[in-house]
Design a protein around this nucleic acid. Structure first.
Lengths: 141, 141
DNA sequence: CTATATTATTTAGGTGGCTAACTAAATTGG
DNA sequence: CCAATTTAGTTAGCCACCTAAATAATATAG
């Protein structure tokens, strides 16, 4: 088999870059970098998370979280405050600015979803999502 | 709809990181970084490509290619030589070392494919691949 | 109660990827 | 034939990621 032309893995890898690029372009317009919206998604759902909780939820390593939060704090999107009970933990809270981005960011993701799913039926979409989760599980367990 | 939990886009974004991480881990064992294998795939198919050809084939920007090639040249995987007919162009050729990695890299990708597709039937795989290509097209056109 | 282990975060350094701005060479047009 | 444009690559600087190693605070074991 021609691995490069025909494998699902290659199609996936190429789609990933296009997907990321699309989101990056859109987020740039509202002053965010791709990846940062994932931090915000978590905070919109639950404020005051610790940094290690982000690492776990986003499936990234702790140093990645540290740096992203430093930049986002510098950008006034959030603040970090020490946990009163455990001095090792620093907890993250949204600022007004961070809160104000919820609408535009969710809109971007909704448009992404609409656009990417064009020409794919609803049953196919469900199957697709199930397969993506399955593959994810196959690769991580 | 709970965008974060249910959208195909989120499932895709998460799978992408897992996929990339898996490939990165495997490539590390043979001294490569994720992304570099794409350069090599192209060279194994056709030696002597120009740098802009890589940018186009890999769907990345020229500066990305420049940096990757610089590092890969430093790592003895390839060499860059000026084109005899057009002094603007520099062409890329495999070294012995670069050529020697074809087998192990292709094996990694085959194993990735086998592993990710576990539990997904062949017809489903074909549908999946078609959908991935469709989404890619939806996002880039 | 103290030594050890674990947990949370950071720092340092490297890679792929991007945009903006620059150089140099080839092509095109008046 | 020469000026203006296009093309090919690079440099600078930013960001998300990673691993390895350090720091500091809490929890555990003897």
């Amino acid at each position: 088999m021609d691995l490069y032309q025909n494998s699902v893995g290659m199609a996936l890898a190429q789609l990933c870059r296009a997907n990321r690029q699309y989101v990056d372009d859109e987020l740039r317009k509202i002053g965010l970098h791709v990846g940062q919206e994932m931090i915000l998604f978590q905070l919109w759902a639950e404020d005051g998370l610790s940094q290690s909780q982000f690492a776990e939820k986003l499936c990234v390593e702790p140093p990645t979280v540290t740096k992203m939060l430093q930049r986002m704090e510098a950008g006034q999107l959030l603040v970090r405050r020490p946990d009163p009970d455990d001095a090792r933990i620093s907890r993250v809270f949204l600022t007004e600015k961070g809160r104000s981005l919820e609408e535009p960011v969710k809109k971007i993701w909704e448009e992404l979803d609409t656009r990417s799913m064009s020409g794919i039926s609803l049953p196919e979409q469900m199957l697709l999502r199930r397969m993506l989760l399955q593959i994810h599980e196959n690769l991580t367990k």
